[in-house]
């Protein structure tokens, strides 16, 4: 991981690190190379991935529209709102 790639990763995650923070993250990433080598040394040939630790099936509900919360309640926590909508900086 070099600084240029890290900056791209920051942009992807909507973060902007200081150069000191970048140094710390680059050191963290460099240390993870040894982790990945340790994992590579474990033979996982023919071992299936395990996403869920217990047997589970997806839970589906009826495709019926509902309104669990009032619009006004949802907007109470909004830092800025106007006329029943979230207010954001100009997009266009």
């Amino acid at each position: 991981m070099d600084r240029e790639t890290l900056v791209k990763l920051e942009q992807l995650n909507q973060l902007s690190l200081t150069s000191q923070e970048q140094d710390e993250v680059l050191a963290f990433f460099a240390a993870r190379e040894a982790d990945w080598e340790a994992l590579a040394a474990i033979d996982t040939e023919n071992i299936e991935r395990m996403v869920h630790v217990r047997p589970m099936t997806n839970v589906l509900r009826e495709d019926v529209a509902s309104q669990p919360f009032d619009r006004e309640d949802l907007l109470v926590q909004a830092p800025e709102s106007m006329d029943g909508y979230w207010q954001v900086p100009q997009v266009l």
């Binding site: 990763l9 995650n13 909507q14 973060l15 902007s16 923070e21 710390e24 993250v25 997009v91």
Partner: peptide
């Protein structure tokens, strides 16, 4: 801009360890 809002909000509000974890997770 909205991108600036997202980036500044997350950058100013999240701590260093969390930022490291986000970036590692993304990587």
């Amino acid at each position: 801009s909205i991108d600036e809002l997202y980036t500044k909000s997350r950058t100013e509000a999240f701590g260093s360890l969390l930022k490291t974890a986000i970036l590692y997770g993304s990587e």
